[in-house]
């Protein structure tokens, strides 16, 4: 596969480490009400779509950016690649 890195352009997927579901960005906090339940949901309850899926990839053999890659699990078509830090900010993780 080829991942179109937002800063570096097209790179072979062998340069990357694949982590999984990009919902890992949405980590709850210890202070949340029902934190135990929230962490259980966060860590163990995932969708497994046949189709578009947002995943975290790490450009380990490159610039060490975490990326959010939207990949179709049935065709491997990659429709969008974003820097995970931008995505985290967009999801309200600025502190």
């Amino acid at each position: 596969m080829i991942i179109n890195h937002p800063l570096l352009g097209p790179r072979d997927s062998s340069e990357f480490y694949h982590l999984g579901d990009a919902t890992l960005i949405d980590r709850p906090n210890r202070e949340d009400v029902n934190a135990a339940e929230a962490f259980y949901e966060y860590l163990y309850v995932r969708d497994n779509p046949a189709g578009k899926y947002c995943e975290l990839w790490y450009h380990e053999q490159g610039d060490r950016s975490w990326l959010v890659v939207t990949r179709d699990t049935t065709t491997h078509e990659i429709s969008e690649v974003k820097l995970a830090s931008d995505e985290a900010r967009a999801r309200g993780r600025s502190v």
Binding site: L19, I25, R27, L83, A88, V95
Partner: peptide, 8 residues
Amino acid sequence: FIRQCLYP
């Protein structure tokens, strides 16, 4: 991961 994905 913590630095970029959780606390950018």
